[in-house]
Design a protein around this nucleic acid. Sequence first.
DNA 1: TATGAATGAGCGTTCATTCAT
DNA 2: CATGAATGAACGCTCATTCAT
Lengths: 229, 229, 229, 229
Amino acid sequence: MVRAIAHISNSHFMVRLQKPIEARKAPRQARSAATVEIILEASARILEAGGLAAFTTNLVAEKAGISIGSLYQYFPGKEALMVALLRRKRQELVTMLEEAAEAPRAGDLGTLIDAFIRAALHHQFQRPRLAASLEYAERHLPLDEETEALKARIASTVARALAAHGIPDAATAARDLAALTRGMADTAGLFGETDMASLEARIRRAVRGYLGLNPSGAADDQRSEKSKR
Amino acid sequence: MVRAIAHISNSHFMVRLQKPIEARKAPRQARSAATVEIILEASARILEAGGLAAFTTNLVAEKAGISIGSLYQYFPGKEALMVALLRRKRQELVTMLEEAAEAPRAGDLGTLIDAFIRAALHHQFQRPRLAASLEYAERHLPLDEETEALKARIASTVARALAAHGIPDAATAARDLAALTRGMADTAGLFGETDMASLEARIRRAVRGYLGLNPSGAADDQRSEKSKR
Amino acid sequence: MVRAIAHISNSHFMVRLQKPIEARKAPRQARSAATVEIILEASARILEAGGLAAFTTNLVAEKAGISIGSLYQYFPGKEALMVALLRRKRQELVTMLEEAAEAPRAGDLGTLIDAFIRAALHHQFQRPRLAASLEYAERHLPLDEETEALKARIASTVARALAAHGIPDAATAARDLAALTRGMADTAGLFGETDMASLEARIRRAVRGYLGLNPSGAADDQRSEKSKR
Amino acid sequence: MVRAIAHISNSHFMVRLQKPIEARKAPRQARSAATVEIILEASARILEAGGLAAFTTNLVAEKAGISIGSLYQYFPGKEALMVALLRRKRQELVTMLEEAAEAPRAGDLGTLIDAFIRAALHHQFQRPRLAASLEYAERHLPLDEETEALKARIASTVARALAAHGIPDAATAARDLAALTRGMADTAGLFGETDMASLEARIRRAVRGYLGLNPSGAADDQRSEKSKR
DNA sequence: TATGAATGAGCGTTCATTCAT
DNA sequence: CATGAATGAACGCTCATTCAT
């Protein structure tokens, strides 16, 4: 009998304790972890197939084969699903990038950026439509600290590595290269390309050009070129 | 009955029964043309400021200073507004690109791509948030034939120009360069960059690298580089 | 196609411009005014019959014979319905009380409080279940300024009148008398009493006792009695 | 098969076979009694702090430190919690009132009503918000027989005592005095008053006035006053 | 033509209640 | 007995679209 009243209080009277965007329930049990997985996979598939417009909590629950109530036991809201998806993607990427930056042969700029490109492609070229939806949504999403931190780590990992090789304005360069790679990978995915090696080679040409490396890989007159800008 | 069908067509999962997306009324009268203009400008402003989430037909009508009923006299639905915006953007771009391709000095590849980049930047860097929303929406929008045709014309204009300068796989290259430019411009806009000259220079480096031109502008061993792939 | 996104923005991204609790649309047209009336009457009836638990916006719309969407064109939310009902009640009461306070014969304390009691009874004894629901809800309702102001005016009208007759601690007395009257009227209504004259007489006895008046109406040793407290 | 039947019986459209509102399990064991206590105290605290709107079974279980499943082992539903709280309150009150009525000095009407007022205040002024929620809820709650009986006993205890002192229409008087006291105490609580002695004195004035007693306590011309009605 | 009140499907979300473990 | 994951009806509310004026 108190249903209606409850709604009143939720909208206005009670202190809203900073609605958390992250997962609501720590998946301590194997069962729970599996459910979280199923929910996120359903979310990903819907975003891939129909974009943000088709992404409704009810549909997610349906495709995940659970009730809408269960979905809300694991995630506090619709946004949390996207944030979780985003965080996962970022975690993967940060791991790959940091590994690339710390690899023994990372001393060679050419080798380093090849590794970076490969990492970015792995991140972006799989499920490009999903990536595009998450990217668009991100603009309007209040991210939790952890996810923000991952973003910063991604940027700084690349920037630091570039700076270590004498690239000027490394932060901007990192941003540009990420944007360039993302743009090309996204479009390639959209056009149904599957030959990742070809795409990688094309991106490499652009990246090397941007950095002033000659195509074969040796840094060529980097400093003087830059000074002309 | 008509009403029921209309509602069905709104559904995201059902086949859309041939709903026309183009403007409902050819703006033959000056008054009409002006109204269309006002509506589209209001649409653009809303998309820029609030993204797809804020883009509602009622708000468009309000900001345009007309009634919602009038809006529906000029456009058959919400999507038509975005399609119209998209078509305009494309018309602008196609004009600039074709002018660039036909310019007297277009014989020089370096000059040509500089012109292309400038055109693309003009297209993308103005109102980057609007561009991003339209691009995202486009993926899920059923475009009318004319808008599709413009897209094809943009691609082929660039591709033909590149092919004329001996660039292999010109269609793919055109796509790549557009994607690369779009990605970088979009990100730069997002980060609030305003120095278009700097951005243009950075894009040029990437583009020239992609095409195998040396930074100063001369095509350098393009063919042999390509043959190594 | 943007439905889902719209919801995102509404919950978090956009600036919430101080959601107004008052009526959304000024009922300028007779039609609109009539609709507002119908909605409020439906609201009142539901609160009377089923209390806060039964008071749902969908039911209000149904009983009012309008669509749920129309309801939200006139009121920005569920709470606004209750606030509007409350404000009306208060407006009635404040009018009656101020008339009583300014009446020619208000110089006589006995006459004055009789008028106050009659006003309060008129306010409370009609639809006691509605009054009870509104009173309970009020505890948790964010009132608009106007409604708050009415409340203050009610209290101060009575307090000032009592003070003018030498009643000490007039603010507390006003509160007590209002509470006493409300309590008795509410209970009488709940028990289905219909003889308002009898109820009025009983309340008068309590009120006069509280104020130290003898039953016939003359203030009897008011000051000395008070000084003993 | 058994399962199927269970599900059918859960349906809201079928006749509900005698759903009991009282506690499901007689707390014969100390452990059970303690759990019931904890649950009710948690319920009371929630009603006090957040009113009916915040009163959810899940929250009660959480605050009580038990599982929601356990709660349903002790109480058949949400309403049962409120009914139990109400019954307790009433049991306390009935005890105090009956003691007052049977006290040696109860022969004096003034002394008697002073005791009644004190009992009522104890009942109402402690946790006034809890009392208000229970009173509001009671209107729409299907009470069990025992709780109804307590209500009747409260009314008749007071009514009989008043009748014994020659008060006419004692049942109505009992109701009125209870309502008057409740109203004043509730409002005082709402306004944060803490001086119970002052409140008691004010209520006494009203009650004595109602009963036609002079302020000092002696019944004054009660019968003649009444006969004038 | 222009208006804007009206519509209602459908969204995000809650919470009383059940039942397998 | 206790647990708590799961359920899903029902709620408050939005917004694309229609149509009487």
